[in-house]
């Protein structure tokens, strides 16, 4: 099927089989490999991207559902020189070890900060329930999200 979607600000027209998943469009067709596949069963959140501004699991979005939408991936939020405040906070707070979960933990965390009011330790943990990290024990991730939330609020 023919689909048109905006990925990180660029309009893309693609011809893909109907049973293609958004995550495969991103990784295989557009070579945006920062979005990962952890479980492929909608559980782990390693494939999280923003679809029209909200965090979704891209392994559970079909090509036809992505048609006409605007997608933001980890590649679209900052540059190596100018990191997004969430990326900078993850680095400062040592919120990653192997890094596999990190891109999508960051995308989920940005959604959390942008779309949910008062965040504290508990609400960050609840808000990230859809993202698994097998390394860090989450403690520093929560610190990073709270620290970035302050910086993002100050900027806004």
């Amino acid at each position: 099927m023919q689909i048109t979607l905006t990925v990180n600000g660029t309009l893309r027209e693609l011809d893909v089989p109907e049973n293609t998943l958004l995550v495969d469009i991103l990784r295989e067709r557009l070579r945006l490999t920062g979005t990962h596949v952890g479980c492929d069963t909608s559980q782990c959140g390693a494939c999280t991207v923003h679809l029209n501004g909200r965090a979704v699991k891209s392994c559970t979005v079909l090509a036809g559902q992505a048609d006409g939408t605007s997608v933001l991936t980890i590649e679209g939020i900052g540059t190596p020189d100018v990191l997004h405040p969430m990326q900078a906070a993850f680095r400062e707070c040592h919120a990653l070890q192997c890094g596999f979960c990190t891109p999508c933990m960051i995308m989920a965390a940005i959604d959390l900060v942008e779309n949910h009011k008062e965040l504290d330790n508990k609400s960050v943990r609840e808000g990230l329930e859809g993202n698994f990290c097998r390394c860090t024990g989450y403690h520093n991730i929560v610190r990073a999200v709270l620290s970035a939330a302050e910086k993002m609020a100050a900027k806004a």
Binding site: S42, G45, T48, L51, R54, A55, V56, K57, T60, V61, A108, D111, L112, G127, L128, E129, G130, N131
Partner: peptide, 9 residues
């Protein structure tokens, strides 16, 4: 229900 991403879809 589920998690944030599940609730968004």
């Amino acid at each position: 229900i589920g998690d944030n991403q599940v609730r968004n879809r």
